[in-house]
Amino acid sequence: MHSWEALLLGLIEGLTEFLPVSSTAHLLLTEELLGVKSTGRTFEVLIQLGAILALLTVYSGRLWHLVSALPSDARSRRFVLAVLIAFLPAAVIGAAAHSFIKNYLFESPLIICIALVLGGIVLLFIDRLPLKPRYHDVMDLPLLSALGIGFCQCLAMIPGVSRSGSSIVGAMLLGADKRTAAEFSFFLAMPTMTGAFAYDLYKNWSILTPDDVGMIAIGFVAAFVAGVVVVRYALDFIARRGLSFFGWWRLLVGGVGLGALAVLH
């Protein structure tokens, strides 16, 4: 992998991680196009740290207020518990299925493209449903709803499904409005992505070379910069415009990918 390829992939990670389009699918398909492959497919997971730090940077004030309120505010404690409960399914299933996901699902462009197309159809369908939201503040989501969102997020272990997409759709079906669903997805990303980063680093640090570390560093910085921009504007965009744009984008990318696979085998 060259430096410019790591830079490009980092930008793609930052631009797509918090949108319901599947950053993993975009990374893996771009790598197929470029003809590159990272050691142990670790680059794709580890550069997520840049996106995580972008999210933490933008939400630093909100997080500080939340943490400082924990001793005295029951509502804040319940919200933190809701995020942790939502994280549990991914932590358990992700650890158990880690090898299968990395060794098989990450290696199948066909599965990725099909998941993109099916996910696009789901987003277009959900965006047109006459849903009647009951929750308009991310702090008000019930614990049981949070658990349901956590199980929905686990669908994103299939590359192409999208972590943010599955959690946003799950939250909307469980009564959250679009902005609240997207914001809960942001908060849920913090433990989920941090856990994925830590677990993948633990499993694969011994096979990384100095060149791998250098490329990961470039991708990390690019993901951080792009991630800051996306996090600042994504909530307002989703609240105003809904999910249809992302649904059509997924259909385009997945359709082009399927066409390329059919032609180029």
Rank of each mutant, 00 (worst) to 15 (best):
K132N: 09
F125S: 09
N103K: 11
L131N: 00
A96W: 10
G120Q: 10
G119Y: 02
G119D: 02
D140S: 07
H98R: 05
P130H: 10
P130S: 09
P109M: 10
I101C: 14
L124V: 08
L110I: 06
L123I: 06
E107L: 07
L129T: 01
L123Y: 03
P133Q: 15
F106L: 07
E107W: 14
L129H: 07
F106E: 02
M139E: 01
K102R: 09
V122S: 05
L129Q: 05
K102A: 13
F106S: 08
V117P: 05
L110S: 10
E107S: 11
A96N: 10
I93L: 09
L123M: 14
V117S: 05
K132A: 09
G120K: 14
I126W: 03
P142H: 01
H136I: 08
I112V: 10
L144Y: 03
F100V: 14
H136N: 11
I114M: 15
L116E: 07
I111H: 11
Y135R: 04
A97N: 14
D127C: 09
L123R: 14
A96H: 13
V117E: 02
L105H: 15
C113N: 07
I126R: 01
R134M: 02
P142R: 00
Y135S: 03
V92I: 08
A96T: 15
S99G: 08
S108D: 06
V117Y: 02
A115C: 09
F100P: 15
M139Q: 02
I93V: 13
G120W: 03
R128W: 04
G119R: 04
I101M: 05
P142V: 01
H98K: 04
R134L: 08
L110C: 06
I114D: 13
E107C: 10
I114W: 05
S145D: 00
G119H: 12
H98G: 00
I101K: 09
D140H: 01
I111Q: 08
N103A: 15
E107I: 04
L123A: 07
V117I: 07
L143H: 05
F125D: 10
L123F: 07
H136W: 03
I126G: 06
C113A: 10
I126E: 07
H98W: 00
P109I: 10
D137Y: 01
V92C: 11
L123G: 12
L131E: 00
L129Y: 03
I126Y: 15
V122F: 10
L123V: 06
K102F: 01
D140W: 01
A97S: 12
G120S: 13
L144Q: 00
A97D: 03
P142T: 00
G94D: 07
I93T: 04
N103V: 07
D137G: 02
G120P: 11
D140Y: 04
Y135L: 01
H136Y: 11
A97V: 12
L144D: 06
L144M: 06
L105I: 05
I126N: 08
V92G: 11
F100H: 14
P130K: 09
P109C: 05
Y135I: 10
V92M: 13
C113L: 13
R134D: 13
F106R: 02
M139D: 00
I114P: 03
Y104R: 08
E107N: 11
V122G: 15
A91F: 11
S99T: 12
V117R: 01
V122N: 13
N103L: 14
P142N: 00
L105N: 13
L118Y: 04
N103F: 12
L141E: 00
A96D: 09
S108P: 02
D137V: 01
I111K: 15
S145Q: 03
I112A: 04
L144C: 03
